[in-house]
Design a binder for these strands. Structure first.
Length: 877
RNA sequence: GCCGCCGUGGCGGAACGGUAGACGCAUGGGACUUAAAAUCCCUCGGAGAGCAAUCUCCGUGCAGGUUCGACUCCUGCCGGCGGCACCA
């Protein structure tokens, strides 16, 4: 027995070196075992890892190590999402080149990740800012271009005035840029777009097949794609005053049933008809200008009044040529959705109602609740959007909403004007094409050339990659590529005359939309190696933060389809299993003057249940504040380096897994880390005790086991069954609990044996050996360094990282006699111990003979006895 | 506004419709020690009864319902969190 403490600081680098030298985490593409691809979202090289990374990568590593032990060929790679604005910001602030800054950060973070003892195949490491990566991305871009999955078009874009770049819709949060936080402006620019909307329906439908994704993420994606079914209908315009070439207005509606409740037609301010009318009406032009200025900021939209401008035009009701509706231009109609025009039905749409009240337009209820009277039912200041029956609607009266929708569609589809149907059924999506142009330097150059005569041309394959120039300056805002003296000037690949390169670079979300495929063959000369891709893809388990539930995951799904369409992969869906982990949160501490204090400077104490915090340097009292996401502004971050160097990687890993279910937030606490550290030491002591008592590794299995030995074995195999299942279902907090239970059971068994005072019998020694081995192997995916140390202490010569998962003896999980709880009228009154396979009658008899049951019955005869075999007995009196 | 998730001890959280509170943290008590740290043992939802082993009642946000039996299923509320949002 040893009383030596386990020295993580000494042991962890030692084992890391051994793993490294033996190359045991290097993965081959031609291994005969079944493949398993586990991936965590690769980090942005900001300079230092944070606790979120520790949590994310620990979870992935547990899965990787477990799957390896289960006999799989596991791919577990790591790389760097290395393009992006922070590098340019650093360049502007510190006069350091983005490339230098990025690669230095990568080196620093790689060292940190290595100190966590992750079982990564570093030979596949990639950085998206390296030409060896982005050259293939340029190739993909050109292939997509050829396949008409990319287009260049002028469109209003979200312009971030601080970062001086365009943002995708997905990157605008509450009207502000997702990085800069600046209020976003609308600008008209010519931009490159990936035509993700080509796959709107495919992306939506396939969500149903993603059964190993969180329901929450699937829903978010469904809502984001936003499919709605409706009717596209054409309102004829009354001829007076109508501008040339406009004879009708196309309107999209999901509520054709409310057509007889229509009281106006409204156009978006940027609708072509509005523009045509504005040419001859300065007042309308002014109104449209005013609408544009309103902007996109959320507060403005919330407060904005519904405003309209009566154009004087009249639209004819499709079912009544004498019924004319006024045509307005209105500030709440969006050009981007549907046709940019609506018919307003105030009774059943709140916005339309607000508008109608303001402009004194008629409000007719045409859908009323089932039990309401059409004569008395009235709309006041709330539109009615509930279910009911049709009213005031001529031939629709009395129908359900569904039937009325169908009836209107049927009739209008048949009716023609000119040679077209008046209406047709249509599906609309909320999803927009993905604008990828960014006016930044530190990104993947878009490989096209603009020639005055030949137009926009792809860079020929032989000229790839288009490499970023390194001699750039950041003294001015804007895009350094644009003002570089020579880089953009090239000759046209077609006519040879002077031409210019595209100076926009790609959105960094492009870089992360296919890196998981590149990992399967990081050195391939083409973007992918088909054999490797076919072998490894899809990713079996992907793990990352919910913040990427829409952007990154949807883009990756699109990209995979686009790569399939261009012959680069054979799959549609990149991620078979997806898991979104919760955040790492921490208490906040504040001085009397309100300034925040970082946890590292705080001393905590607890007396009589009262937790107190003081500044450790001065003893000044601190206020303990809310538990919040770790952030620089609240100064409640904990540096992984401090934790790793004080307690070691295993303690950090263990704590990350132990306290909360992995999909929920975990509260990082000093006490919790101490607890995890105590368990590291305890496991080490327990192992050494066991090493002193256990049979040698090659001891023969005894013919029979005493009850004590049997108990030890049952505890071990019970834990084995639970931990295996819980790792597979990513319920790491429960794995931790079961490992604690096994450790507790073994401690108790050792104490019992010591209390008995006799020499350990051979069968118990064998059981201790078996249980000790299982305990360490169960702990190994979570605390790999400690496990190696313990494995060696148990006199094994192998590396536990290369050991197979223990084999479960299922027979040990089945008890011969079982103890059932006994209820009387649903309240537990006693226990009964019976043979596992006892007949219900026998159980019933045994139960009714129990003293507490008789007492609870108080002389009444039981009406019924419910025996749920191997579960419970309930006596109903 | 729409869609979704979550409400269990002092805290994080366990619990195929079947013994509510596993496991951990914190707390209180004890052992070891000159002392501290470390470690070990016990206690640990609330109220009550008993010298005691133990027993009784209440308890999973609130109000109902289904069931022999509900943290779990259903209906309606209340509270918190997240996503989307002038999407026709």
């Amino acid at each position: 027995m040893t009383s030596e403490r386990y020295n993580a600081r000494e042991a962890e680098p030692r084992w890391q070196k051994i793993w490294d030298e033996r190359g045991i985490f290097r993965t081959r593409n031609d291994d005969p075992r079944p493949k398993y691809y586990v991936l965590e979202m690769f980090p942005y090289p900001s300079g230092r890892i944070h606790m979120g990374h520790v949590r994310n990568y620990t979870m992935g590593d547990v899965v990787a190590r477990y799957m390896r032990a289960k006999g799989n060929n596991v791919l577990h790679p790591m790389g760097w999402d290395a393009f992006g604005m922070p590098a340019e910001n650093a360049a502007m602030a510190n006069k350091v080149h983005p490339k230098k800054w990025t690669y230095e950060n990568i080196a620093a973070m790689k060292a940190q990740l290595k100190s966590m003892g992750l079982s990564l195949d570093w030979s596949r490491e990639l950085a998206t800012c390296d030409p060896s990566y982005y050259r293939h991305q340029q190739k993909l871009f050109l292939d997509f271009l050829k396949a008409e999955l990319v287009e260049r078009k002028s469109s209003p874009v979200n312009w971030d005035p601080v970062d001086q770049t365009v943002l995708a819709n997905e990157q605008v949060i509450d009207g502000r840029g997702w990085r800069s936080g600046a209020v976003v402006e609308m600008r008209e620019l010519t931009q490159w777009f990936f035509k993700i909307t080509k796959y709107s329906d495919a992306l939506l439908q396939a969500i149903n097949g993603l059964d190993r994704w969180p329901e929450k993420v699937r829903l978010m994606q469904k809502n984001w794609i936003g499919r709605s079914e409706g009717l596209l209908m054409r309102f004829a315009l009354a001829p007076q005053n109508t501008p040339k070439n406009f004879t009708e207005i196309e309107v999209f509606t999901t509520r054709p049933d409310t057509l007889f409740g229509a009281s106006f037609v409204a156009l978006a301010p940027d609708h072509p008809l509005a523009a045509a009318l504005a040419e001859r009406d300065p007042k309308l032009a002014a109104f449209i200008e005013e609408c544009r200025k309103m902007g996109t900021a959320q507060e403005l939209i919330d407060k904005a009044e519904k405003k309209g401008f009566d154009t004087g035009l009249k639209a004819v009701h499709p079912f009544d040529s004498k019924w004319e509706l006024p045509v307005y231009v209105a500030n709440f109609i969006l050009m981007e959705y549907g046709t940019g025009a609506i018919f307003g039905c105030p009774a059943h749409d709140q916005r339309d109602l607000d508008f109608a009240r303001k402009y004194k337009l008629p409000v007719t209820a045409v859908v009323i609740p089932e039990d309401a009277d059409p004569k008395t039912f009235e709309i006041h200041d709330k539109a009615y959007d509930g279910t009911g029956k049709l009213a005031n609607s001529r031939f629709l009266d009395g129908m359900t909403i569904e039937a009325a929708k169908e009836e209107v569609a049927k009739r209008l589809e048949k009716e023609t004007r000119g040679n077209r149907a008046v209406a047709q059924r249509q599906v609309h999506y909320r999803l927009r094409d993905w604008g990828i142009s960014r006016q930044r330097y530190w990104g993947c150059p878009i490989p096209v050339i603009h020639c005055k005569d030949c137009g926009t041309l792809p860079v020929p394959d032989k000229d790839l990659p288009v490499v970023l120039p390194e001699d750039v300056d950041f003294d001015r805002p804007g895009n350094p590529l644009d003002r570089h003296p020579t880089w953009k000037h090239v000759s046209c690949p077609q006519c040879g005359k002077a031409a210019v390169r595209e100076t926009d670079t790609m959105d960094t979300f492009v870089d992360s939309s296919w890196y998981f495929i590149r990992f399967t063959a990081p050195d391939a000369l083409a973007p992918t190696d088909k054999a490797a891709e076919r072998y490894w893809m899809p990713v079996d388990q992907y793990i990352g933060g919910v913040e990427h539930a829409i952007l990154h995951l949807l883009y990756s799904r699109f990209f995979t389809r686009a790569m399939k369409a261009t012959g680069h992969v054979d799959i549609d869906e990149p991620f078979k299993g997806m898991f979104t982990q919760g955040m790492v949160v921490h208490e906040t501490y504040r001085k009397a003057d309100g300034t925040y204090v970082e946890p590292a400077a705080v001393k905590l104490s607890a007396e009589g249940g009262e937790r107190r915090a003081t500044l450790s340097a001065t003893g000044e009292k601190l206020e303990i504040g809310a538990i919040e996401k770790m952030s620089k502004s609240k100064r409640n971050t904990v540096d992984p380096d401090d934790i790793l160097s004080t307690f070691g990687a295993d303690t950090a890993r263990w704590f990350m897994l132990s306290d909360s279910p992995p999909d929920r937030d975990v509260i990082w606490t000093e006490e919790g880390v101490q607890g995890a550290y105590r368990f590291v030491q305890r496991l080490w002591r327990l192992t050494n005790e066991l090493a002193g008592l256990a049979a040698p590794a090659n001891a023969a299995r005894p013919p029979a086991f005493s009850p004590a030995a049997e108990g030890v074995r049952k505890a071990a195999h019970g834990a084995l069954a639970h931990v295996s299942e819980d790792i597979e279902r990513l319920r790491f907090n429960r794995c931790v609990a079961h490992i604690y239970e096994l450790a507790n059971a073994l401690t108790a068994a050792i104490n019992d044996a010591a209390a008995a005072g006799k020499k350990i019998s051979a069968d118990l020694a064998y059981a201790f050996r078996e249980a000790g081995d299982i305990l360490i192997r169960l702990a190994a995916p979570m605390m790999p360094h400690l496990a190696e140390e313990c494995w060696a202490a148990l006199a094994h010569k192998t590396l536990i990282a290369e050991e197979p998962w223990p084999v479960l003896e299922r027979a040990l999980l089945i008890e011969e006699t079982i103890t059932l709880p006994v209820q009387v009228n649903g309240k537990k009154r006693a226990d009964v111990t019976v043979a596992r396979n006892a007949a219900d009658k026998e159980v019933e008899a045994a139960v009714l003979a129990l003293e507490p049951v008789r007492r609870a019955l108080e002389g009444r005869a039981p009406k019924k006895v419910i025996v749920v075999p191997q579960r419970i007995v309930n006596v109903v009196a």
